[in-house]
Design a protein around this nucleic acid. Structure first.
Lengths: 192, 192
DNA sequence: AAGAGCATGTAACCTGTTACATGATTAT
DNA sequence: ATAATCATGTAACAGGTTACATGCTCTT
């Protein structure tokens, strides 16, 4: 399941240009499978070379010809097989968590900055998803709805965790806790 | 924040060999920053070449010499600067979500399989984290505790979402819902 | 006038993954 | 016996990112 396969999948719903596909990646796929022109255009060229899509060039004035790609029967079959056979991974690489692992060695302001930035990003992601959902009129495919809901739910959970547990990183002494809340708060955070 | 920087960070807590570092990556970092020997050994060689770590070779019988790396003052400084200056990203690439976006074009059994696999993985991740937390006796660094809690919370939220919303993907007609639950369930899933 | 949107692509680069190569010791 | 653990590394490969290259039109 690489960018190439995803392009094939999107094209098997409707014909599109590389530019169009980029916009699709920017909307729903943005937060779990980003792709730029640098991967989309070569992917399209490869798919065409393999005969999985065909390309119709539409002349334009003042801009490069618009190249609209369409799935071929072979492409449709290849995508179906890909869906059947792939063992979909869920990879993540979080520099955010890696950095916070070393929170001990950072200044409190820096920790606060990282935490706030991440929460802002997460809220942005939720907003982005809810905007998309708001533009659906009940006719969106169930896969899209499931995926959007998943993204929003997980982003909200992440933001909530940060808000609820940032104290663990920002208040480093029992004294600090006492002064701010009147009583020490034993760390219950990590219980099952 | 690449594998190289993380190795430097781990080494600035205690000296270790590449093999040791791999184990550290396998424990807490496993779910948000995986790294294999193929990235760790070259990273260590680069760090040594740059003078950020020093290496002591300990002869062994029957195995390659154990190479224990230690941070140099320059390395400590470089890591501090990296923590200060990095703008930590949180990248994810989920073939799982990408595949489910196309759930319409999959057989129900296949969808069920993907969902179950993912839930099993998520529960495994939670288990893994809770095992680590169980081995801590209150003395673990706060960064580690925060990160572990975050991972567990997010994994639980993801698993819960899947369990609660898999119906959206598996029951595809109002008829099916009526037969199983006695009444159709309007899609409330995506409301804010 | 400035900026966003439309529209395509290439080439160098970075980083990480996978497979290969070796081999003794210890636990089940 | 078999598998796991210890212990190191290289080389080829894959895949994606970034910067470069071009240029018109429409909106503000």
């Amino acid at each position: 399941m690489d960018v190439k396969t995803l392009c094939l999948g999107l094209l098997s719903a409707r014909p599109a240009s590389g530019y169009d596909l980029k916009k699709e990646f920017e909307s729903l796929f943005k937060h779990f499978f980003p792709a730029g022109y640098g991967s989309i255009y070569p992917a399209l060229a490869d798919l065409a070379a393999a005969g999985l899509v065909s390309c119709e060039e539409i002349p334009q004035t003042g801009k490069p010809d618009r190249k609209v790609y369409q799935v071929t029967p072979a492409g449709r079959e290849a995508f179906a097989r890909a869906l059947e056979e792939c063992q979909p991974q869920h990879k993540m690489r979080s520099e955010f968590l890696a950095a916070l692992y070393f929170a001990d060695r950072m200044e409190a302001d820096r920790v606060r900055e990282l935490l706030e930035q991440r929460v802002a990003e997460l809220r942005g992601a939720v907003q982005h998803i809810e905007n998309i959902q708001g533009n659906w009129s009940g006719d969106a495919p169930k896969g899209a709805r499931f995926v959007a809901g998943f993204g929003a739910a997980v982003a909200k959970a992440a933001a909530a965790y940060i808000e609820q547990h940032k104290g663990l990183l920002l208040e480093d002494s029992a004294t600090a806790r006492k002064q701010r809340h009147g009583a020490p708060r034993p760390s219950l955070e990590n219980r099952a």
